[in-house]
């Protein structure tokens, strides 16, 4: 097994190459629609990958992860609008406050098992949603945060310029995925897998299951919130839709479409779902019919995510190859 030990140098290399390619993309293919797509996919990739830390790696099926995406968007937007702080400060506020939210919600929810965990996370998300809708003076209610989010320059980065916004989004995404990758490949990451596969055995081996799950929940929450922040910067606002349960649903679909057994699967799923959505809404107003048919094809035909499928196919080929060699 090559991946038994974290291979930091290799991961950094891959991340650097990916980042370089993404940064070069606008020069090679100057198309604003593609730029916009990459920014949105960056936000969703962080969101979906962080959700997969819970679903795929720890076996905690959260139906309420959209809570963090929306919270991140609102926390960031409100910090910029109301406090008038710099973007790095607002970023820090978003990270800290979403960690706190994750700590509180996680501490209560983690005690519940299986589908009940799913439902309580959903309940908390909907509580947050109802609050956002009802607390009009702060959040703007159903209208969302209006009037735009100010984007003052910091450290030579001016996010009101499209090229800067693009570079910022892909950098945050690649850095975020790199950090998440290190987490899942660390001993802690393997602890989470053990909890997923056999919780009793894990606690028998002296692992504090509650603490490990809570840590995973908080980390996932923070990265989900960072995804929301990237989205808020892109649309220059925050909307209740981000906190609604449909957001959590989309996160789950991204994971399922992309594949939950590979690290890059959820990010791939974010790309697939976004492209599907864009292409289908361009082509027809009956997008439900088409999107539904495509999803059915995935679920009943492929029966797994795209990257799972590719990974299995590669493995089969390799096995066939080595058998042939012998």
């Amino acid at each position: 097994m090559l991946t038994a030990r974290p291979n930091l140098a290799r991961d950094i290399l891959i991340a650097a190459v990916a980042l370089a390619l993404l940064l070069l993309l606008p020069y090679v293919w100057p198309n604003k629609m593609i730029n916009d797509l990459v920014i949105r996919v960056s936000a969703f990739a962080l969101f979906a990958t962080s959700l997969n830390l819970l679903v795929g790696y720890t076996g905690m099926v959260s139906f309420g992860h959209g809570m963090f995406f929306g919270f991140g968007a609102y926390a960031f937007g409100l910090s910029m609008q109301r406090l008038g702080v710099s973007i790095p400060t607002a970023f820090l506020i978003t990270v800290l406050s979403s960690a706190l939210l994750g700590l509180v919600v996680g501490a209560i929810s983690i005690r519940l098992k299986d589908i009940y965990f799913s439902f309580i996370t959903l309940a908390f998300q909907m509580l947050l949603y109802s609050t956002v809708i009802a607390w009009v003076p702060l959040t703007g209610g159903d209208q969302g945060l209006m009037g735009g989010i100010p984007r003052p320059p910091f450290l030579g980065v001016d996010l009101s310029i499209e090229a800067h916004r693009y570079a910022f989004a892909v950098t945050v995404m690649v850095a975020g995925l790199l950090i998440l990758r290190q987490i899942v490949e660390s001993p802690f990451g393997y602890t989470l897998r053990m909890i997923r596969d056999n919780t009793e055995r894990a606690s028998f081996l002296g692992i504090n299951v509650f603490r490990a799950k809570l840590t995973a929940f908080v980390i996932a929450g923070v990265f989900g919130a960072i995804g929301g922040m990237v989205m808020a910067l892109f649309v220059s606002g925050a909307y209740p839709e981000f906190v609604n349960w449909t957001m959590s649903g989309e996160g789950i679909f991204m994971i399922m479409l992309g594949g939950l057994s590979t690290f890059i699967g959820p990010a791939a799923g974010a790309l697939i779902l976004s492209v599907l959505n864009d292409v289908i809404t361009r082509g027809t107003e009956h997008h439900g019919l088409f999107l539904g048919a495509v999803i059915l094809l995935f679920a009943l035909g492929l029966r797994k995510g795209v990257t799972d499928f590719i990974a299995d196919w590669l493995r089969l080929n390799r096995e066939a190859g080595s058998r042939g060699g012998n």
Partner: peptide
């Protein structure tokens, strides 16, 4: 179609122009 979602309205509008 924006499906009535503000963020989709934003995306669609940008795409229409860009």
């Amino acid at each position: 179609d924006s499906k009535g979602q503000p963020q989709e309205a934003a995306r669609v509008s940008r795409e229409l122009v860009n």
